[in-house]
């Protein structure tokens, strides 16, 4: 196993089926540090790369709960403690009228956590990434499908991994410089 100074090797495919089959083959071969790049989400690919779990639902749930609690407490604090208005002796803690704003704050905070959680989990914004060094990679946002085996994978070998990718019948295999 020779250490290399590249990011990885990348194979280009021209249809989603070929990419999914290639991803499965690479997993079967034992590669774990791999990623695929596609112009649109492909459900089968998520299965093939075993990517199912992510923490976003949890982040959104926590965000929503915090938002709801803050929304309710804000109204409780203002109407009961900070600025109490006695109207006809009606209760100061008038919870039914708090529901709307509590709901809105829940949705607002959950939505904000969904978006910022998405960015955080994806490590975005990230203006530079080694894959952008591959000239044909611009097509990953148009009509080409890429599979990249990264150099950090224990099984990675510059020569052998390229040869393995060639066996998957790609359009082209290229090295990804750092």
């Amino acid at each position: 196993m020779t250490k290399t100074d590249i990011y990885g090797v990348m194979a280009e495919f021209d249809n989603p089926t070929a990419l999914v089959n290639a991803a499965r083959a690479a997993r079967e071969k034992g590669f774990r540090k791999l990623d695929a790049y596609t112009p649109f989400p492909i459900e089968e690919l998520t299965d093939a790369l075993h990517l199912h779990k992510n923490k976003l639902p949890l982040i959104v749930l926590v965000g929503g709960i915090i938002g709801g609690i803050l929304g309710y407490l804000l109204q409780y604090y203002v109407t009961v403690w900070h600025f109490p208005l006695n109207i006809d002796g009606k209760p100061l803690h008038s919870w039914p009228s708090y529901i709307v704003i509590t709901f809105e704050m829940t949705v607002l905070c959950a939505g904000l956590s969904a978006v910022f959680g998405l960015l955080a989990l994806c490590g975005l914004p990230q203006p530079y990434h080694p894959t952008f060094n591959v000239p044909r990679f611009a097509l990953a946002s148009r009509n080409r499908f890429f599979l990249c085996i990264e150099a950090t994978d224990p099984l990675f070998d510059r020569k052998h991994t390229s040869e393995f990718l060639e066996t998957l019948e790609p359009k082209e295999v290229s090295e990804v410089a750092h």
Binding site: T38, P39, P41, T46, L49, L51, L56, G64, G111, C122
Partner: peptide, 22 residues
């Protein structure tokens, strides 16, 4: 810096669904 990574798409799909649900 969106690059269409499968890892990103998987989170992205979750995020779209959650945002739609909200």
């Amino acid at each position: 810096g969106w690059r269409g990574s499968a890892r990103h798409w998987s989170v992205y799909e979750t995020a779209s669904l959650l945002l739609a649900g909200l």
